Computed example of a mutant assay.
Amino acid sequence: MARLNIALGQRSYDIDVEAGALDDVATHIAPWAKRGRSLWVTDSTVARHHWPRIAAQLESAGIAAELHVVPAGEASKSWAELARLTDWLLGAGIERSDTIFALGGGMIGDLTGFAASIVKRGCDFVQVPTTLLAQVDSSVGGKTAINTAAGKNLVGAFHQPRFVLIDPQVLATLPPREMRAGYAEVVKYGLIDDAPFFDWCEAHGADVLAGEPQVLDHAIVTSVAAKARIVGEDERETKDRRALLNLGHTFGHALEADTGFGERLLHGEAVGVGMVLALRYSARRGLCDLADAERVAAHFGACAMPVTLHDAGVTADGAALVDHMRHDKKMAGGTLPFLLARGIGQTFVCHDVDLADVAQFLDEQHRQAR
Rank of each mutant, 00 (worst) to 15 (best):
A319Q: 15
H310T: 11
A2R: 12
G301S: 15
H204Q: 10
V224G: 13
A157G: 06
M1P: 15
D124T: 10
F338R: 15
A61G: 00
H204P: 06
L244K: 12
A65M: 01
V164A: 15
E178L: 09
I94P: 00
L39N: 00
L339M: 15
G36A: 09
L58Q: 01
A56M: 00
L209S: 04
V119Y: 07
P213N: 08
T308R: 13
Y13A: 11
P306C: 06
H49G: 02
L103V: 08
V314T: 01
H28C: 06
L174Q: 10
G334E: 06
T250W: 13
G248A: 11
L8V: 04
L58V: 03
S223W: 11
R84Q: 07
V231F: 10
V271A: 04
D124V: 03
F101T: 07
A283C: 14
G260P: 10
K34V: 10
E95S: 12
Q368N: 03
A219H: 11
K120E: 04
G20E: 04
D16Q: 11
A102G: 11
D110Y: 02
G91Y: 00
A157S: 11
R177W: 06
L171M: 15
L290G: 09
R48P: 02
A254N: 10
E18Q: 15
E59V: 00
C201N: 08
A115E: 11
A195V: 11
A47S: 15
C123Y: 05
F158Y: 12
L111H: 01
R229L: 14
A33N: 00
L255E: 13
A278E: 11
L247N: 05
R3L: 13
G141W: 04
N147I: 07
A219F: 02
G248D: 11
E18R: 09
G93M: 00
P31A: 02
T222I: 08
M107K: 04
S97A: 07
G109D: 09
F361P: 06
S12E: 14
A33Y: 01
F300K: 13
A312L: 14
Q365T: 05
A243I: 02
H204W: 06
Y13C: 10
E269V: 13
D354L: 13
G286Q: 12
M107V: 14
M305N: 05
R11M: 10
T315Y: 03
S38V: 00
V271Y: 02
A56T: 06
A195L: 12
R295K: 12
D23N: 13
H324V: 04
A206T: 14
E18W: 06
L132R: 14
D217W: 13
F261Q: 09
T112D: 01
E212L: 14
R342H: 15
K329A: 03
F125E: 03
Y189E: 09
H218W: 10
T315G: 07
A210L: 07
P31K: 00
R177P: 01
L191G: 04
A226Q: 15
G142E: 05
V215Y: 09
S38E: 00
S76Y: 06
A293L: 08
C123N: 08
E235S: 02
R326I: 07
W88T: 01
